[in-house]
Design a protein around this nucleic acid. Structure first.
Lengths: 340, 340
DNA sequence: CTGAAAGCGCTTACAG
DNA sequence: CTGAAAGCGCTTACAG
């Protein structure tokens, strides 16, 4: 029952039913103008042969495919959340979803992957695409909605309120009595990265705490990128009493480095992340972080894309969703609460 | 920069470069027998126009597409784990991955979704497919590997050692002193469901504890399906001191029902699940469960599919992966440890 | 109500 | 080394 012969095509059905492929196509697509008898014959042939129209052939011929695409570089935990949101928004919408992932990202196409995939899908397969965290600005012949766009992007997009989120983190740390607060930044090209750094700087400035450039490390959102930065910060004589990493992945790495150096958290060091991925709740006594509902990002992106495709979208094309601070065990007052 | 005109086709490139589409195709695919000058011209036209070949047109024409498919009904947390494993196995393999999800699952196609999607992809788009937890037996004109097949399936598949996993759960509960152990089964058609029930029955029998049919509830792996079953079990005068649910989703529901009824866990009731989804570690003091590495399932399924497609697969076509018991706070000795 | 024919964007023998 | 032509599996005007 596993692997059977060649796929059943529309010609096979036409032959079996004694009609032309045009007629089969009409029946399959429920077009008017086919006699009841013919419909019955064709239906029975379809049933017997187990025919299903080829997605590829159909979408090559049709202008509208009722398939939306999603292009992502990786499948992290947060990707699953995004996908759940997307599927919920698409439920009963008449749009199917296709997700395309490339296996060669460690080779040639790393930089422009999203553009390449987008183009390969757009002309024919999909009516529109969601792109998750692209490396650059994207363009397409069909509608696109970007989740986490690059800085300065003009494409329709959905993003979390990174500025407010980062601000709340620093206010939380300041409230606990921290004054030397380190920051590990994310990939510079992303708008999210800039906003988080801006929130960090702004909140310090607001509190009258000077920003010390030596306390800022440059990561790229990749967990590994945070390790050397954390080590550099924590090896200093005047090391920070708290580190705010621009993503949970990086923050978890900071926790690992702290443990490696024999620093207790939050006694010797408070650590905060951003994203609230599931792993953050599991790490030791929990990682304090900013929740940006990836589910919501996915949901809103899909809702927007769907409406743009059908021409019904009226609202703004750059959506910003609220974030919320989640305080867990990785933050506390510094050892000597004499700062200020 | 967002939405641009019509997609750039191979004809556009051919026109710009002053050659035929056949030549462009040769350059794009790196075929021999094109002069250096022509290659340069075509390359420059491709560059200027930002051309990418259409995935759909290419795969319609070619027999081999170097794209593998994955068909899934939902995106749960475990799906992300499966996908991570799949991508890892496919990394650098030359195979891209396409995931297809249907938005109308709540309508017509609920029952046969996997077969329908499979057929629509198989003829043309993909060289082979992974199907996650199908409703029935699947057939296809190209290779298929099923994760969690239905009972009696003969298709190549990867599955966890559900029998051993369930056995270890019951042994764990027996070891704590439980004798009245309830069970909430999963969807009957799945092989996983049968094996888990078999493990439950077998371990009880092994210990000389008679299986009481009133302690077995029939769920379908869907969390919601467990609520009425749990209530029925817990409303009994001779209620069980422990409930083993065949999935974490259902087990978490059991915890909710217990709380609703004012039962303390594990004091009044021990609860065990199966799967070890991330949420299980977060629930209260943690859900005791069986870890079946979804990452491994995905990884092995992709590795097998890839090899079958390239004709290199030599090993068994029904892989069973080990499981391990994860003891957390939801299990403990029953209130009166006087059983025996 | 039905079919022959063109064409969606490609690739691949087949000629030259 | 290069191009004209056929064809992958469909859909859609256009005739009849």
């Amino acid at each position: 029952m596993a692997e059977v012969g060649a796929p059943v095509t529309m010609s096979d059905v036409a032959r079996a039913a004694g009609v032309s492929t045009a007629t089969v196509s009409r029946v399959v697509n429920g077009r008017y103008g086919v006699s009841a008898t013919t419909i019955a014959q064709v239906r029975s042939a379809i049933e017997q042969l187990g025919y299903e129209s080829s997605l590829v052939a159909t979408s090559l011929r049709r202008s509208r495919t009722h398939v939306l695409g999603l292009v992502t570089r990786t499948f992290q935990s947060y990707t699953a959340e995004v996908l759940k949101g997307v599927m919920e928004a698409l439920r009963q919408s008449g749009f199917d979803l296709i997700i395309y992932a490339n296996s060669d990202l460690y080779e040639t196409y790393l930089e422009g992957w999203e553009q390449r995939h987008l183009t390969r899908l757009s002309g024919t397969l999909t009516d529109g695409c969601i792109v998750v965290t692209p490396w650059g600005e994207v363009r397409s012949s069909t509608p696109v909605v970007v989740i986490d766009p690059v800085k300065g992007s003009t494409v329709p997009s959905v993003t979390a309120d990174n500025l407010a989120g980062a601000t709340s983190v620093v206010e939380h740390l300041l409230g606990l009595g921290h004054r030397r607060i380190g920051f590990i930044a994310g990939r510079p090209s992303l708008a999210a990265s800039w906003s988080r750094e801006e929130g960090y700087r702004g909140a310090l400035a607001e509190a009258g705490v000077p920003v010390d450039p030596v306390l800022i490390g440059r990561g790229d959102f990749n967990p590994e990128s945070a390790a050397p930065q954390a080590r550099a910060l924590l090896d200093r004589a005047d090391r920070p009493t708290a580190i705010f990493a621009a993503s949970d992945g990086m923050a978890l790495k900071v926790l690992a480095v702290a443990e490696e150096l024999g620093l207790s958290v939050p006694g010797d060091l408070s650590v905060v992340g951003f994203d609230n991925i599931p792993e953050s709740a599991l790490a030791g006594s929990g990682l304090t972080t900013v929740d940006q509902s990836m589910y919501q990002l996915g949901y809103e992106a899909a809702r927007m894309l769907k409406s743009i495709v059908t021409g019904e979208w009226e609202g703004r094309r750059q959506i910003v969703l609220p974030t919320s601070l989640v305080v867990r065990g990785s933050t506390g007052p510094p050892r000597s609460t004499t700062g200020a």
